[in-house]
Computed example of a mutant assay.
Amino acid sequence: METERLRLSPIGPHCADELYRLHQDPGIARWYGDWTRAEAEARAAEIGRSWHRDGVGKWLAYHRKSGELVGRDGLSYQDVSGARRLEIGWAVREAHWGNGYATEIGLAGLTRARELRVTEVVAFTEVHNVRSRAVMERLGFTYRHDFPHRGEPFALYAISQSD
């Protein structure tokens, strides 16, 4: 899949090194923790399985002109507030913050959700992650409520889509 500035490549086991490198970025590690190479390998394998099992998964986002790794994004099914829901998420390397990449890749994820005829997509982040919350609002998500996730308070947003 391509956007105006990005090429989105599905993550699978072959992407473990790139996923590991991405999560070494200070701006991403701040929110997702320090991943080991083994964790990146396990996560890449799980994302690959989700593409086959669910028809959705995460993409690595590369700049179309330079080929530089910008971030990752995509869709996955998550247990959120006691229900299995389609979640969209993104992570952009700190050097690229403020350039609209999270919004651009978020729109690509919502397009994929519409293709799958999914009527609701959720997004969530730590309650104090104002940058991510602003992206959610730019994409048209509405704040629903806070909920506990990984032992921390997270803010849940949702968007309803119709044909």
Rank of each mutant, 00 (worst) to 15 (best):
E2V: 10
E2W: 00
E2Q: 10
E2T: 11
R7S: 11
S9F: 06
I11W: 05
G12D: 11
G12M: 10
P13Y: 13
D17I: 02
E18I: 09
L19T: 03
R21V: 06
H23P: 06
G27Q: 07
A29S: 13
R30M: 00
Y32T: 07
Y32R: 00
G33S: 09
A38L: 08
A40Q: 05
A40W: 08
A44C: 12
A45S: 07
E46K: 04
R49D: 06
R49K: 14
W51F: 10
W51Q: 01
G55S: 01
G57T: 03
K58A: 11
W59Y: 14
A61P: 04
Y62D: 00
H63S: 04
G71K: 03
R72C: 08
R72K: 14
G74M: 06
L75P: 01
A83W: 02
R85P: 04
W90I: 10
A91V: 00
R93Y: 01
H96P: 00
T103F: 02
T103P: 01
I105F: 03
I105R: 04
G109A: 00
R114M: 15
L116N: 12
V118F: 03
H128I: 09
N129K: 01
V130D: 07
S132K: 08
L139Q: 02
G140C: 02
H145M: 08
D146G: 12
R150E: 13
A155R: 06
L156S: 07
L156D: 00
Y157I: 03
I159S: 12
S162H: 15
